[in-house]
Design a protein around this nucleic acid. Structure first.
Lengths: 166, 166
DNA sequence: TTTTGTTTTCAAAAATGACTGAAAATATCT
DNA sequence: AGATATTTTCAGTCATTTTTGAAAACAAAA
C-alpha cells in the first residue's frame, strides 16, 4: 500500500468512526488530515485535499479549535492562517472526553437530580425512584471518574488503563 | 414532581442521551419505559405509552433484545409476549460496551492493521506511519481494556472505577 | 482609504437516517 | 384446518443533520 492510498483510507475511516463520537464526518476528516500532515495547512489546502466547501472547512476548523484538538498559527508576513493538530493522543482523547461529558453527561445529571424529587407514594413510584436512584448514583460516579481522568496527566492516564488490563 | 411527570421527563432525557450512545431515540425511549416499569409490558402497551408506530415498537424491541438490554417472556395461556429490561446497570453498560466495540472499534482496528503496510519512503510517509503506529497501539490497548471490562463481573467493574476515582 | 485576499455566516439544498403504515408472515386457539 | 390475534418486514414518507454557496464581514497591504 502506498502513502496516497493510505492517507485516503485513514481519512475515510476516521470519518466513519466520527458518528459514534459526536463529531461530524467533515470535522473528523479535517482532523484526520491535519493529524497526518507533517506541516501545518491553511484552510485552502484542506478544502482542496478533502474536496469540501469553503464554509464547511471554516466551520469545522473553528469547531476543532473550540474542542482543543487543533491549533492555529499566523505565519509572520503572511495573510493566511495555518492549522495543525494536537498530536499527543492522550490529550486528544481528553479533549473529546471533556466535550462529550459537557454535552451529554451533565444535562442528564441535572435531570436526574430533578427526578430525585418524585415522591414514593405507590408501588409504581417506588420502583421508579429505585431505578432513578441507581442510575443517579452510577452517573455521578462516572462523572467523578471522568473528572479525575481529565485532571490526570497523560502518563497516569495510560498507566491506569494498563492497570485495568493486567 | 409527581410520578407521571417524572416518567415523562425520564423517558425524554433517556432519548436525548441516546444519540451519543449509538442508539436511536425511539430505541432509548422503549428502553427507558421498560426500565422504569415494575411489570413487563407487551408491544401494544409500549406503543400506547410512547405513541409510536407498531412497526417501530417491533423493530426496537427486537434491537433491544439483540443488544441484550431487554428480555422477552411468553406468559403461559396468553398470546402476547411481554418484555422487561435488564435492571442491573452494570450489565446494561457492559452490553452497550460490547455492541459499540463491535460496531465502532473493531472495524477501525482492521483498517489500522492494513495501514501498517504503508512503506516509509519519504518524510511524509514517515510521519504518517508514526501517527498510525501511535493510534494503532492505543486502539489495541483500548480494545484489550474493554475486553477485560466485559469479562469482569459487575462487582469488580464498579470497584475498578472506584479505584480510578480515588 | 481603497483594493485585495481571506474568513465567517447563514439560508437553502442535499444527504442521511428514523418512522410509519399496511401487507405479509407467524403463531395461537378452537 | 380455519379463524383470529400478534409480530415482522419494508417501501415510502418524514424529520433531522450536514453541507453548500454566495454574500457579508474582516484584515492586511498598497
Amino acid at each position: 500500500m502506498d502513502i496516497r492510498e493510505g492517507k485516503q483510507k485513514f481519512i475515510e475511516s476516521w470519518g466513519k468512526m466520527a458518528g459514534g463520537w459526536g463529531i461530524t464526518p467533515a470535522m473528523a476528516q479535517v482532523h484526520a488530515l491535519l493529524l497526518i500532515s507533517p506541516e501545518p495547512l491553511c484552510a485552502d489546502q484542506v478544502k482542496a485535499e478533502l474536496d469540501i466547501s469553503t464554509g464547511n472547512v471554516s466551520m469545522n476548523l473553528r469547531a476543532l479549535l473550540d474542542w482543543g484538538l487543533v491549533y492555529k498559527e499566523t505565519p509572520p508576513g503572511c495573510r493566511k492562517e495555518v492549522y495543525f493538530a494536537e498530536k499527543d493522543l492522550w490529550k486528544v482523547i481528553r479533549q473529546i472526553i471533556i466535550n462529550r461529558k459537557k454535552r451529554e453527561l451533565e444535562p442528564v445529571l441535572l435531570v436526574l437530580d430533578e427526578l430525585a424529587a418524585v415522591q414514593e407514594t405507590c408501588p409504581q413510584s417506588e420502583h421508579f425512584c429505585t431505578v432513578v436512584r441507581d442510575i443517579r448514583k452510577l452517573t455521578h460516579k462516572a462523572n467523578q471518574t471522568l473528572d479525575t481522568l481529565i485532571k490526570a496527566d497523560s502518563h497516569w492516564l495510560g498507566g491506569a488503563f494498563l492497570n485495568m488490563v493486567r
